Amino acid sequence: MTAIISASELADASAGPRPPVLLDVRYVPGAPPGRPEYEAGHLPGAVFVDLDAELAGPPGAGGRHPLPDVAEFGAAMRRAGVSSGTPVVVYDAGLGWAAARAWWLLRWTGHPDVRVLDGGLAAWDGPLTTEVPAPAAGDFRPVPGGLPLLDADTAAALARDGLLLDARAAERYRGDVEPLDRVGGHIPGAVSAPTSENVGADGRFLPAGALAERFRSLGVTAGNTGPGTGVYCGSGVSAAHQLLAMEIAGLPAPALYAGSWSEWTSDPGRPVATGPEPS
């Protein structure tokens, strides 16, 4: 099983004997929830999942999108019809950042079969519907710990002694602009690795070999794969896309700093670096 699914593969799976549960996680940072877009047209059978309300806890010192309460996350997934023995496919309307957040949370809490629609809604050429489904409740019971996590201290240690990738746009890494958080820049020692470079012009992921080469060029080696590599972004959303790309590339799962830059900069005592990476 791969971490992504094409639109044609999804169409076949949806018509098969074991159709997946579909989750629509449309989300734009700083914009209202994507429910109106969902109601205007979505994949048949898809259930809307609100990233802010169901895939994150309340914003605060832990960042703009801290991890949700596990029990509340499990209840939201069961309402959406998610069961442990049923495949799940997640999609959004963008580059896959929000969908990757749902993918990562389900994997982190133990779901064995979850994939992201490659290319998102734009890749789907089948019918859309405005009918809102009422799925039977699922039985998924989340058990956290399936993927490695970082906090601020372990992220700092990894930036110093291992490899910490910054998934935000390069201008945010450098501190040229900061549209969302208190201060611009990056965690000292982190390497700039914009998530947008995981996909091609069509919004689909690059081939596995190209992704593997990309991560090798960023410093991912046999000696630091898995928890020896960490990833962060602004609030722990787009960083999940980096983890998804690394899985497609066949690399062991790196550790996610879920609080990311929004948590890091909530403490003015934590150091901030600006400018490009040292040559």
Rank of each mutant, 00 (worst) to 15 (best):
M1W: 15
A3P: 15
S8V: 10
E9D: 09
A13I: 10
A15E: 13
V21K: 04
L23W: 09
L23R: 04
D24F: 03
V25E: 01
P32T: 11
P33C: 12
R35T: 12
R35S: 10
P36H: 12
Y38H: 13
V47S: 05
F48G: 03
F48V: 01
V49C: 05
L51N: 02
L51M: 04
D52W: 06
D52L: 05
A53D: 13
G60K: 04
R64I: 14
R64Y: 02
A71E: 15
A71P: 08
G74H: 01
A75Q: 11
A80T: 06
L105C: 09
H111A: 01
D118N: 12
G126H: 13
P127V: 11
E131C: 03
P133R: 08
A137L: 14
G138A: 03
F140A: 00
R141W: 09
L147M: 12
L147N: 02
D153E: 14
T154I: 00
R160Q: 15
L164N: 06
L164K: 05
R168Y: 00
E171R: 11
V177K: 08
P179S: 09
L180Q: 11
R182G: 13
V183P: 07
G184V: 08
H186Q: 04
I187G: 14
I187W: 03
A190P: 10
F205R: 07
F205D: 03
G226D: 00
T229L: 12
C233D: 14
C233A: 10
G234V: 14
G234K: 01
S238W: 13
L244W: 14
A245V: 02
P252A: 13
A253W: 12
L256P: 01
A258F: 01
S260Q: 01
S262I: 04
E263T: 11
T265D: 05
E277R: 10
E277A: 10
